[in-house]
Simulated scan of single mutants.
Amino acid sequence: MIKIGVLALQGAVREHVKSLQAPDVEVKVVKRVEQLAELDGLVFPGGESTTMRRLVGKYGFFEPLQQFAEAGKPVFGTCAGLILMAEDIKGEPRGYLQLMDMEVQRNAFGRQRESFETKLFVKDVGEEVEAVFIRAPLITGVGKEVDVLSEYEGEIVAARQSHLLACSFHPELTEDARFHQYFVQMVRESKETTADSMAVT
């Protein structure tokens, strides 16, 4: 079994839990820092990024989340979760957790009324992947180690850097679980690699 957590400080937690379901996956709703130690992977859900940053600080998650990612454990951020992960945020002095080598722009698609649904090609995931954009950010720039997975009208909306995965949209608000299952496979491979290296030592 692999254990994947969904950070439950704010956002569509239940929907992420549903999308991560697989026979070999145990999904944990994460509300306490101590829970991170038992996880093989972690999801940062969407929500309101400023509120999420405040709650991450309030409940002592800031350094533990950085350490989780630095240990090579896979992390997947959607919408506001993507903003938390970014090295740089346009118009701000720096990013927050600064996990992933990318610059993002908040609310790049406008306010709530500009929300929309579409289907995207996502590299290594599939064709016509369902995507819901709600006050979505954009990835405005990426470092050389970052692989662009998907674009919408020429703008980057999904990317991967090694064990880190992020998208501008909400795949959890659709019935299409392929993006989440791609992350589940990342976690499987990460755990297998860790187990193999431990066996060698």
Rank of each mutant, 00 (worst) to 15 (best):
I2M: 06
V6D: 10
A8D: 07
A8M: 08
L9T: 13
L9V: 14
K18C: 12
K18G: 06
L20P: 11
Q21R: 13
D24H: 13
V30H: 06
R32W: 12
E34V: 15
E38W: 12
L42D: 03
V43D: 14
S49E: 02
T50K: 10
T50G: 10
R53T: 07
K58R: 15
Y59K: 10
Y59I: 10
E63Q: 11
Q66P: 09
Q66Y: 03
F68Y: 08
G72T: 14
G72M: 13
G77Q: 07
G77D: 09
T78P: 11
C79R: 01
I83S: 01
L84I: 12
A86T: 02
E87C: 07
E87Q: 15
D88V: 15
I89T: 11
K90W: 13
G91I: 02
R94Y: 11
L99K: 02
N107G: 13
A108W: 03
F109D: 06
G110Y: 09
R111M: 08
Q112M: 07
S115R: 03
S115V: 00
F116I: 12
F121R: 09
K123M: 03
V125D: 00
E128W: 05
P137A: 03
P137T: 03
K144M: 08
E145S: 13
V146D: 02
D147W: 06
L149D: 01
L149N: 01
S150V: 01
E155Q: 15
E155F: 11
S162W: 08
C167I: 09
C167W: 03
H170M: 06
H170L: 05
H170Q: 06
H170K: 05
E172S: 04
L173A: 14
T174W: 02
E175M: 13
E175A: 15
R188E: 00
S190T: 08
S190K: 06
K191P: 11
K191Q: 13
T194G: 12
A195F: 05
D196F: 14
D196C: 11
T201E: 12
